[in-house]
């Protein structure tokens, strides 16, 4: 997979969480992920199509997402419920939208599908293609999360 696809998703993730949830996220070192087991407890996945196709996922630990959504709503969230699932879907949407804007500037135009959200310990994440998956761990003051980017080229 071409590494040029990765940075727009890192930038978009940082921007979305900072703007909507006043949460500073710091990206760690990207690594090649060999299995499909989610790093977090709730994961949003979205398919992208266009010149190339791929999927991205955003997998939050319970601690990190409760803090993020509490900030988004200005109200304390205490459990992984439907409201959290909905919020993860919309965060995934926004990351995809922002990243696609940056990719457009690089001449890559992509359209996004409607995101899906999976909840549970050690669930699996199915990327649409069988290509290498690049995972990027992030840290916030309230726990971590991981994004995965998988493109066919």
């Amino acid at each position: 997979m071409d590494v040029k696809y990765i940075n727009p998703f890192i930038n978009a993730t940082i921007n979305v969480l900072e703007t909507m949830a006043f949460t500073k996220a710091e990206a760690g070192k990207p690594y090649l992920k060999k299995d499909q087991v989610a790093q977090g407890d709730v994961t949003g996945v979205i398919g992208l199509i266009g010149g190339v196709s791929g999927t991205i996922s955003v997998s939050f630990t319970e601690k990190s997402i409760l803090s993020i959504v509490s900030n988004m709503f200005g109200e304390e969230m205490k459990e992984l419920n439907e409201e959290i699932k909905d919020a993860v879907g919309e965060i995934t949407n926004m990351i995809s939208g922002q990243a696609r804007q940056e990719l457009e500037g690089m001449g890559i135009s992509l359209k996004a599908a409607i995101p899906s959200v999976i909840v549970g310990k050690n669930h699996s994440i199915n990327h649409i293609t069988k290509h290498p998956i690049i995972a990027i761990p992030f840290n916030t003051a309230n726990g971590g999360f991981t994004i995965e980017v998988c493109f066919e080229k």
Binding site: V69, M72, F73, D86, A87, G89, E90, N93
Partner: peptide
């Protein structure tokens, strides 16, 4: 379509 965004806009 997302309740989250309706809630944020309403806030």
């Amino acid at each position: 379509d997302f309740a989250t965004m309706r809630r944020i806009v309403k806030n």
